[in-house]
Design a protein around this nucleic acid. Sequence first.
DNA 1: GCCCAATTGCGATTAGTTCGCATTCACTCT
DNA 2: AGAGTGAATGCGAACTAATCGCAATTGGGC
Lengths: 141, 141
Amino acid sequence: MSNGSNEFAQALREAGLKVTQQRVALLAILMESTDHPNAEEIFVRVRALDDSVSLATVYRTLSTLEEAGLVQRLTFENEPARFEITPASQHDHLVDVDSGEVIELPSEELNRIRQDLADRLGYEIVSLHSFIRARKKPAAN
Amino acid sequence: MSNGSNEFAQALREAGLKVTQQRVALLAILMESTDHPNAEEIFVRVRALDDSVSLATVYRTLSTLEEAGLVQRLTFENEPARFEITPASQHDHLVDVDSGEVIELPSEELNRIRQDLADRLGYEIVSLHSFIRARKKPAAN
DNA sequence: GCCCAATTGCGATTAGTTCGCATTCACTCT
DNA sequence: AGAGTGAATGCGAACTAATCGCAATTGGGC
């Protein structure tokens, strides 16, 4: 297997993780997914690449990658967790309550203020989980 | 039953909900709980007040109260949902990853910025779900 | 190439939450 | 106050997302 050569294998090695076919496939899928899929959806997509991958491995690998900081888990209400490749800069999420669509809300200001609040209490931030549920306003025109 | 007279009955009526023994008991418990209990914990506490309440009703009532805006559901990772009486002003939460303790992070600034971001995208905020997982820093010096 | 711990697939299992249904109860209209 | 009615409740069964135990496989160091 020539898995050892691509960029995903590289990332795994740097994180101190064994490079397996399944992990590479999963990273590849996550990298090309812009829609914050959940485990089940990821499973289906990974299967198309490599039909040996099991659902249990998808769950295990997502947890492993999360722990390694390569992936982030988004825990919304009343739905299975969704996942994204860890973004270059932390952002909040807006969930359209009607369509279910997830929109990213980058804001350095939000990050700065939260950093500050945590600092002041003597804490260091491990991870951020922030989403707004919102509804589209009728166009004001 | 003289349930119709107290402040919780009042709140229920204003929300257009039927005033039942179980709902009043549940509100009473939530009101005196400052520790963000989960459904199971609430169940145990409510039982002490009124041992007729079932777990199913706790879940149903919490959902009903949430929908009515009287209660907020906090969905943290890898643990059952927790609940709090809807606070006068919206706040973020900090979860101590070691102790599990939840600390409230009131910040008008955060609220303002998020309001702004949502506005700009043409959305109105339905609810806020924001927590930071953090670890206590070793006391400096 | 060989070894060994780590990883995987599979099916069974768990934990949290919801549901179906028969019974009880809160509120309305006399 | 009393009867009628739709909503709320208790109970246990069911559901779903996620995890686990275990035997088989595999990646990476020697």
